[in-house]
Write a protein that binds this DNA or RNA. Structure first.
Lengths: 338, 338
DNA sequence: CTGAAAGCGCTAACAG
DNA sequence: CTGTTAGCGCTTTCAG
């Protein structure tokens, strides 16, 4: 990367002249047109980019606290909005400037993110959506800046999450109280801790109520809306529809409901549906039919991430902390009200 | 903001000692436990934060290009995902490291964003969702770093957008070809250029086809799903439902459709609905009923923002450029197929 | 075991 | 009209 010095020497002038020109003060300082020309062509030739770091440092405004948010770049991108909304609400309460840099990463490839393992990138990082493999990696290879892990568990990092087991249990309890007898689980292909916890609790609660869930009752799909629709169509075609379906996320539920609608399967009369609410609250509430969810309070969790980050920054927090928020059941149109 | 120097003098040691300790090399360098204690308590007392700028500068291996994305912090936050997906797809093609910092701002208050008017914050900025007022402000007060304006117009900045007028026209043409005779427009309360362009073209096209749209045919709502639902319920209660409704965004359409569903109004038999597709493509496709939209290619536009930014950076672009992508009509279940 | 000092890229005060 | 230079906060090499 070319520096201002390189530009200066190529143009045959001093650095300050270059600086003056770059910052649009050429007129004011009466730099000759010729010099401006020389400098500009040097800039172009070297493809010079001013260094923001140097400028920030110099301008003493260097104390912007910079947080990197590592977020999976797949279909979970659609959950980013809700997270950012939560972050923002908390950031507004702060009187310090905080820069939020989004670092999308490929699932299972968190190890390739050099910015995670450099002290030169961010003051702190928030890591979300880690797969089991990613989690394993970061637990073995400590990250050199403060970390808040989102909805996962860790021995060495701060965590902010929800009571995933309770969420699975709540979903099962509601389905059972609504009269479900045979249940199908719609899960995401790629396994991660939060899902495992929910699923285990769901299965356990069902079993306690004499509903057995075996391998064949679990369907794996892409975690997207399209994935849910595909699974729904598939179950319908193969006459495998049970009287209740648990979806490990709301996107799949939306797709599933679309498939039911297309196939004239009545919800909740023929099939009841409950989902874990990860996406936009309104999407579920206003879907046709409106979807019963155990909502994960993403905004509160996001806000807590910022709180934790600032507490760490102010050295109030030393040992890894864990904060969990309760998920909340919203009974709506896809389950029966008995 | 305390610096490493302050820490050093409070602890009564040298800067380098502090640095060594901070970076976990105390063992390696055999710093005495006592010194470590002194330094750590000084750090805590002064609430010391290492400056990322200084670190980045020093370790000039990471001369990261930093782009600020200014995005309205209201309900449009839900559109951020789609934008980020587009950005990311383009960033991955690059071989340079680019940091994307999200700067949420309050609509009409862009003028308060100091980071926009400082050369010390970002190498370039992308500005989205500007209200008319915001646009007016930034056109009068030139921003000192390269700017790409998203889906707006400007004399002085680069713009990336869509053919808004064409989008409005396409929506009208489709509605007309589907047999609409009396049309209601559902628009957002806060006016902004893209909406105005679409609306004007929509109205004009209707008029050309002998459908007159007067003030009373235009309903203003909050641009959210809830806003659309409220407007839908309101129209129903007041017997003001026409045979076709144009929604200036898909969120409002979803809410509107929910209201229709609740009130047992059949879509598209009783009311046809078409929307401008700003949000997630899948949400509209898999909604019940699936929604006919004129889709704004947000991902492509986002990708182009990055392209433009890099072209500006490499000095290929000098005069303000404008790039526009075509919106595309997806005929689905909320309009009749005649 | 600890400190002095150079230098990352940039801007601005001051000097010619 | 243009150049010299100090210094922003930090890390690291080299000397004690």
């Amino acid at each position: 990367m070319a520096t201002i010095k390189d530009v200066a020497s190529l143009a045959g002038v001093s650095v300050s002249t270059v600086s003056v020109i770059i910052n649009g003060k050429a007129e004011e300082r009466k730099i000759s047109g010729q010099t401006i020309q020389k400098v500009n062509s040097a800039i172009r030739e070297l493809n010079y980019q001013p260094s923001v770091s140097a400028r920030r440092l110099r301008s003493n405004q260097s104390n912007v606290y910079t947080v990197g948010v590592f977020w999976a770049s797949d279909f979970r991108m659609s959950l980013l909005s809700r997270f950012m909304t939560g972050l923002q609400s908390e950031l507004m309460k702060l009187n310090t400037a905080v820069d939020i840099t989004i670092c999308p990463y490929e699932s299972d490839k968190l190890k390739n993110e050099k910015r995670l393992y450099s002290i030169n990138s961010y003051n702190a990082v928030i890591i979300a959506n880690t797969s089991d493999e990613d989690n394993e990696y970061i637990s073995r290879n400590p990250i050199p800046v403060p970390v808040v892990l989102f909805n996962r568990e860790s021995e060495i990092y701060h965590t902010v999450g929800t009571d995933n087991a309770a969420a699975g249990r709540k979903a099962a309890e509601h389905l059972i109280s609504a009269g479900a007898r045979r249940v199908t689980m719609l899960c995401q292909k790629t396994s991660y801790l939060a899902m495992t916890k929910r699923s285990d609790a769901f299965i356990k609660t069902c079993l306690e109520n004499n509903i057995e869930i075996t391998k064949k009752d679990i369907v794996y799909a892409d975690g997207s809306i399209a994935g849910g629709a595909e699974a729904g169509n598939d179950l319908y075609r193969k006459y495998k529809l049970t009287d209740a379906v648990y979806c490990d996320n709301d996107s799949m539920a939306q797709g599933f409901l679309h498939a039911m609608n297309k196939n004239n399967v009545s919800v909740p009369d023929d099939v009841q549906v409950i989902a874990i609410g990860l996406g936009n609250y309104e999407f579920n509430k206003f879907f046709n039919p409106s979807i019963t969810v155990v909502d994960v309070p993403m905004e509160m969790m996001a806000a807590q991430c910022i709180k934790t980050v600032t507490e760490v920054a102010s050295h109030e927090l030393t040992a890894p902390s864990r904060t969990a928020f309760e998920s909340v059941l919203h009974v709506r149109g896809t389950t029966k009200n008995i």
